[in-house]
């Protein structure tokens, strides 16, 4: 079971590397931030797998933090922090 989960984590990491192509190529800003969100989701998946493989339950909290901050990053991308209305 552990071997299977390790293989799954390696595959997810390689998918993360593939997602980097979209982050690098873009072309638009939204493409890039969505690719970041995708890599964040992949990282959450890897962390959940690692918490089981390495027997470190605390990694679930790290995954939880990434989920929370992924939403915050999305808001920070669309909102202007200063005055006036923003799109």
């Amino acid at each position: 079971m552990t071997a299977l989960l390790t293989v799954a984590a390696v595959i997810l990491l390689k998918l993360f590397a593939l997602g980097l192509i979209r982050i690098y190529q873009g072309p638009s800003e939204s493409d890039r931030i969505l690719a970041v969100q995708l890599s964040g989701t992949t990282t959450v998946g890897i962390l959940v797998l690692l918490s089981h493989v390495l027997a470190m339950p605390a990694l679930i909290y790290v995954a939880l933090l990434f989920v929370l901050f992924a939403a915050l990053i999305g808001v920070a991308f669309v909102r202007h922090p200063g005055i006036g209305s923003s799109s």
Binding site: T43, L50, M56, L59, Y61, V62
Partner: peptide
């Protein structure tokens, strides 16, 4: 963050 996890530093 993943590398810290691998280094046993949650």
């Amino acid at each position: 963050a993943l590398s810290w996890a691998r280094l046993d530093a949650p």
